[in-house]
Design a protein around this nucleic acid. Structure first.
Lengths: 237, 237
DNA sequence: ACAAAAGTGTTTATGGTACACCCATGG
DNA sequence: CCATGGGTGTACCATAAACACTTTTGT
């Protein structure tokens, strides 16, 4: 039997969320500091080896939970990277990309600050201010961001960043951050309203000005097309 | 070292072309009859094990050439399939999809008929009339066709099926076959002309009626976005 | 001359964009 | 009552769809 011996399979995930910082809302992602060679002490995408009894998407969900303690609101395969020279040993990485609700990330961070114990070797970075990365992870993140920016235009992935209930201004701010440009509030409202992906509640967010109606994601559909995980998904659901 | 031992990596390719049959032009693809277990005697996508010294895209191009004797006009990664139960042994398949120029396929078939020697265990099937397939290859082909139909709407992949020079009616027939519906010739002409992806020649195809101008694909751009193969592609180019 | 495909013109609908304007609340 | 964001109305422009019409060839 001639098989592909000598090739290891890894699963990594680009985990994206929106964080409120001094310079406004920014796209952020958690990275893990490597403890071994190759690329010891460099930052890398969370991940690990694919085990014999685990589906790739399951491995992605597991490592995501291990590094962040959270469940993703969206998870999709990004690409399989397998160039011969991308690692000293021969590694094929199946990379996923995921979205986390920013309120859950904020709650998590507050919890860490409160208890004083936060995960070692995990840190959140702004997507536009990344450190030197291990392997080809810089290009991978670049591609994940491209995919996100692309998909936000024809799907409702942006809702994956937001809590259960949100205002249209909050949804618009998320999209604006992803795209890196401002949108017309009036036109944004009409587009998203006519798309039928939102459910208006009777509640309002009260603040400094006129209260804004709260919406929630319509539950009857996916945030976006996630590809052919029909069969794969069986094993995780 | 805990690695992903026990997992084999395969590369398969859904190779698509258009063939002229009794019932008009149809989407077709070559399948290979398996000679071993599992799924012996079943039809399957062309492919093989990923070797330690080969990039996945290179393996796809190689097996494609081995089964068809042709070079693809388009080649893109489709998805990495890795469900635990998709094969008796643990196999992760990195699947690509490719387009072949129909004139090259026709010439190849004519050559085989002429010489009498055609590849054993390889046969072309209509995409809408497939036999029982090995593994999860039926779903894989379904997804490849979905991707093609999707991408034909916002790129010029359809040109990958056509020879060097072609008429707008031929391009339209290709798109109509992919989408499974008729298009308005006048509107189709304007859209493709204004897209700037075609170069008009001074030649005309003479036939039963008014001669049609021949066009060729503009060479300065890809047929479609093929994802992040920047680094991978280095090794094959 | 006629059939049929190549190619042009015109009308209408639709969706996005820009922007003026009104509404409701906190201060 | 004023500043500010929430929310509505409307004109404008680009593109897609539908379809009438002209052109050019083979028979």
């Amino acid at each position: 039997m001639t098989r592909s011996s000598g090739i290891d399979v890894a699963v990594s995930t680009a985990i994206l969320t929106l964080r409120r910082t001094e310079r406004g809302v920014v796209l952020s992602l958690p990275l893990v500091r490597r403890t071994r060679e190759p690329f010891a002490d460099r930052w890398a995408l969370p991940g690990g080896w694919l085990t014999a009894t685990e589906a790739p998407v399951g491995a992605a969900a597991r490592t995501l939970a291990e590094t962040t303690g959270l469940a993703p609101s969206y998870l999709e395969q990004l690409y399989a990277f397998g160039a011969v020279d991308r690692s000293p040993s021969r590694v094929v990485s199946i990379v996923y990309w995921a979205l986390l609700r920013s309120d859950q990330v904020d709650a998590q961070s507050a919890e860490y600050r409160r208890t004083g114990l936060s995960p070692e070797n995990v840190r959140w970075f702004d997507a536009d201010d990344l450190p030197a990365l291990a392997f080809d992870h810089a290009q991978i993140i670049e591609y994940a961001l491209w995919r996100l920016r692309n998909k936000v235009g024809y799907s409702r992935v942006a809702q994956g960043f937001l809590p259960e209930e949100f205002t249209l201004a909050e949804l618009r701010e998320a999209v604006e951050t992803i795209l890196g440009r401002r949108l017309d509030p009036a036109n944004f409202r009409r587009q998203v309203e006519s798309s039928g992906t939102l459910i208006a509640t009777d509640e309002f967010r009260t603040g400094n000005h006129r209260p804004a109606r709260l919406y929630r994601s319509s539950p009857d559909a996916e945030l976006a097309d996630r590809g052919p995980l029909s069969s794969e998904e069986m094993s995780i659901r």
